[in-house]
Amino acid sequence: MQAAIRVLPARLFQLSSGCRHRVTGVGNSRRHRASVSLLLIGDEILSGKVQDRNLYKTAKLLAGAGITLKSVEVLPDSIDVIASTIRSALLSGSVNGVVTSGGIGPTHDDVTYEAIALATDTELKLDEMTAKQMEKMSRKKYGEGWEMNEWRRKMAVLPTPSHIQRVEGLWCPVVTAYLQAEAGKGAGVTALPGVPPLFDKMLSAAISERDGVFHPMVKASRVVASVFTQMTEGDIAALLTECQNNVAKKGIMIGSYPAFNMAEGMMDYRVKVSIEGDEKEDVEDVAFWLAQRLDGRMTIGDK
């Protein structure tokens, strides 16, 4: 459920030095949160033929589950490039998982499963259940004239062994493979289709359902506050830098985003300052302190 928004005019708050001292203290270190890398796969994205829509959805779904999206890369339809990128991420120990988007269809340039098998030292084997589900659901949708052929069967040839999660209403499963030297222990790579509605449904299932590969990583989402000011980024850069340095050990992140439509009267502020962290009280204290000094309007919640 989305956090309730309450508008708190800066002039109503006078922050004490004690409040600021509590925020800048080192006492509460940042909670450990799982992190994920996203690989967007497809020559069509790199060439501008198709506009990706899965990055934004991934960021929102993971953030809502308290999981950090650590990095994003766009890769060509190359087995070697995809495999080396996946393997490097899995061996680095810097992320808890890798998600791929695209490249699991029936055509010659759909090579993600092959790349995952190469990266994780697994084999490619026909998953009979996936093939049966594909045939059953496809004939129901397209009629009895639909026939299984080698290209369609390719979509059921999966890295093996792997964690397979069935999603209601879909024949395509969420497939997660692990480096065989670390099978089931370290980070895994999860393959999802690039088609946005399918990607959304399958990633949501991987996060929310009990057998989902990301379900054990879920934590409470981070607390967000915003301060809206008429000052420009150049005016407030020094203050924001000082504040970020003071609260970094608390795991609080501060960002600033200029409003480009103000000239047309569409925005009532020049800069939005975002304050994000694990502890609600700490985030509010930082936001109060900034709102007072920026003569700004403050909200609590992701707005």
Score class of each variant (00 low, 15 high):
residue 177 A to M: 09
residue 178 Y to V: 06
residue 178 Y to T: 06
residue 178 Y to K: 06
residue 179 L to C: 06
residue 179 L to A: 03
residue 179 L to E: 05
residue 179 L to N: 01
residue 180 Q to V: 13
residue 180 Q to A: 10
residue 180 Q to E: 14
residue 180 Q to W: 09
residue 181 A to L: 10
residue 183 A to D: 06
residue 184 G to W: 04
residue 184 G to T: 06
residue 185 K to S: 13
residue 186 G to W: 05
residue 187 A to C: 07
residue 187 A to I: 07
residue 187 A to G: 07
residue 188 G to S: 02
residue 188 G to E: 02
residue 189 V to G: 01
residue 189 V to C: 02
residue 190 T to M: 05
residue 190 T to N: 02
residue 190 T to D: 03
residue 190 T to A: 01
residue 190 T to Y: 03
residue 191 A to N: 04
residue 191 A to M: 08
residue 191 A to S: 14
residue 192 L to F: 05
residue 192 L to D: 01
residue 192 L to Q: 02
residue 192 L to T: 02
residue 194 G to C: 00
residue 194 G to I: 00
residue 195 V to Y: 03
residue 196 P to V: 01
residue 196 P to G: 00
residue 197 P to G: 00
residue 197 P to Y: 03
residue 197 P to S: 04
residue 198 L to W: 01
residue 198 L to S: 05
residue 199 F to H: 01
residue 199 F to P: 01
residue 200 D to Y: 09
residue 200 D to P: 05
residue 200 D to S: 09
residue 200 D to N: 12
residue 201 K to S: 08
residue 202 M to L: 15
residue 202 M to Y: 11
residue 203 L to Y: 14
residue 203 L to V: 12
residue 203 L to R: 13
residue 203 L to S: 11
residue 204 S to L: 10
residue 204 S to K: 11
residue 204 S to V: 04
residue 205 A to E: 12
residue 206 A to W: 12
residue 207 I to D: 11
residue 207 I to N: 12
residue 210 R to K: 15
residue 210 R to S: 15
residue 212 G to H: 04
residue 212 G to Q: 03
residue 213 V to S: 02
residue 213 V to L: 03
residue 215 H to L: 03
residue 216 P to T: 04
residue 216 P to R: 00
residue 218 V to W: 07
residue 218 V to A: 05
residue 218 V to R: 08
residue 219 K to V: 04
residue 220 A to D: 10
residue 220 A to W: 06
residue 221 S to Y: 04
residue 221 S to I: 01
residue 221 S to V: 04
residue 222 R to C: 09
residue 224 V to Y: 08
residue 224 V to G: 07
residue 226 S to K: 14
residue 226 S to Q: 15
residue 226 S to Y: 12
residue 227 V to D: 09
residue 227 V to Q: 08
residue 228 F to G: 06
residue 228 F to P: 06
residue 228 F to S: 06
residue 229 T to K: 07
residue 230 Q to D: 15
residue 231 M to G: 04
residue 231 M to W: 12
residue 231 M to E: 11
residue 232 T to C: 07
residue 232 T to M: 09
